[in-house]
Amino acid sequence: MARILTYEEKDTWIHRLSGVTKLVFFLLWTLTSMLTYDTRVLLVMVVFSFVIYSMSRTKWRQVGSVLKFIAVFLVINLIAIFFFAPYEGVNIYGSRTELLHLFGNYTITKEQLFYEFNVMIKYFTIVPAVFMFVVTTNPSEFAASLNRIGVSYNIGYAIAIALRYIPDVQDDFTQIKHAQEARGIEMSSKASFMSRVRNMASIIFPLIFTSMDRIDVVSNAMELRGFGKHKKRTWYAGRKFTAADYITLAVTVLITVTALVITFYDGSRFYNPFL
């Protein structure tokens, strides 16, 4: 199983930011890029995304496998959009410039290509932001930050545990899968559907039991150390807000507001170059 994104210690200004700042950036950034279809806004955001991404000094090996997965997914998605709604672009931009007739009811139009281009660069704006948030935020520090902005420390801790244990659970899954494959179960597409479901169950059940064990071990350890005794707790990994945090927050809010104003001032989410 492909390893997913995990935090890696580095010393850049992005790593030094508080987890709250990065969370706010992440939420506002994805919200903006979800709402806007304005090509100009999106292109500016793409540039920003890549600048920030390169500043975070993220290495290819950290994100490569996930990126490849997303790339494949993006291509499938773009093709699927075309086959499910070949004239979405024509509807949106209100004009029709045919480029190439394919077959039956399918004609490639300039409007459709432009619409799908927008969908594509939406991915390019969000993906670096997600990567950056995940690989630069220390899970423990993130839990501390969540608690600081008023989230119950139980929930903060649960999220930190989740982020911390995803790779471990993935390792468990791979090990169990290999063990079962060694015993002769077939997990590839060669097997029939029903036998794949059965074989999947022979991986999932051991995985669930291992995880239940893990829950016992971790909660016993936490109990021994007196977790949950008091209403408040202090955080080893907590981080104070610095000037850089305030500046980042201000710039993020500014970008979001500007982007939304530019997007919506003419009453449409779309930038229409075909007028």
Binding site: A158, I159, I161, F193, R196, V218, S219, M222, G228
Partner: peptide, 24 residues
């Protein structure tokens, strides 16, 4: 909602996320 539940949410979420990729 004790320690066990906190950890169950944590590890459970990890399990849920890790299995996102596993689809038939």
């Amino acid at each position: 909602f004790g320690i066990k539940e906190v950890v169950a949410i944590g590890i459970g979420t990890a399990l849920f996320v890790a299995l996102t990729q596993v689809q038939i």
